[in-house]
Amino acid sequence: MKYALYTGCTAKESTPELLKSTMAVAKVLGIELTILEEASCCGASHLQDFDEFLSLVLNARNICYAEKLGLTLITICNTCQINLATTKDRLDNDEELKDRVNEKLKEVGLEYKGSSEVKHLLYVLRDELGYEKIKNMVKKPLSDFNIAPFYGCHNIRPSELQNITNKGENPYNPTSLDELIETLGGKAVEYVRKNSCCGFHADLQAPNTAAKLTGLALSEAIDNNADFVVTPCPLCQLNFDVKQHEAGKKVGRDIELPVLHLAQMIGLALGLNKKELGLEHNVTEADF
């Protein structure tokens, strides 16, 4: 199985453990990843607030490089996923817009065709590799752990867009992460805020809003006996991991809860060691 990996910015900067663990886990699972080194930032939905057309051109360029390889583009960040998938959806359904974008891309010798799919790693594992196959490779079942899945907005909403690649995941009752946790032998924690927002995109301009949303979600995970949280989105992971003490203050309690990336959790069950999974980079001690 071969894929083009769009790393996103955080995997190369503030969450190096995400890239490390993704590459290590892919290797064990027999997934060959080619990193798209030519790619740029997806705009993270903020460039989109300033210059919509520019964000479409840059993301079309990002997808072009996966098309050149003839591979499906894999994302490992929910926000990268929604921005690339939105671009693809709009260009694939609007010839005039596609022509306008291609006119620009021509200046650098590229053409967006629409031939590569854009999928988050989580759904590639579920729908293309298959959880059954992962189950057979588990060396250290996570049976000691209550694990709180946190889905992250940009993989499940808006469902009209996301359902193109996530096969009808219900944004009000998502199951893909819960099922993966069970596949790895863990116990999925049931809690209401698992599909809610961590507030990341308002971190700078509305810090109280962001901190309260993070605090409420983590509190509920703790109240339902979570040993750690797992999320497919590094932006949720950053808010939860780095800012949990400040978030705790906003909701009036102490919070101490490890927060793992999707690939880190899978890696633990596959028997990879702490170093291979970059667990030393997690701010809240994740010593498993």
């Binding site: 030519e38 740029s40 210059d51 620009k104 200046e107 030393e280």
Partner: peptide
């Protein structure tokens, strides 16, 4: 925790000139 990229190891995209050119023409 090794989560901050320093100026000397700041990642850069390959073919950065393309990106600069597109920003100039598509803004």
């Amino acid at each position: 925790k090794g989560k901050i990229a320093m100026p000397w190891n700041m990642p850069k995209s390959k073919n950065l000139d393309e990106i600069k050119k597109l920003i100039k023409s598509s803004s």
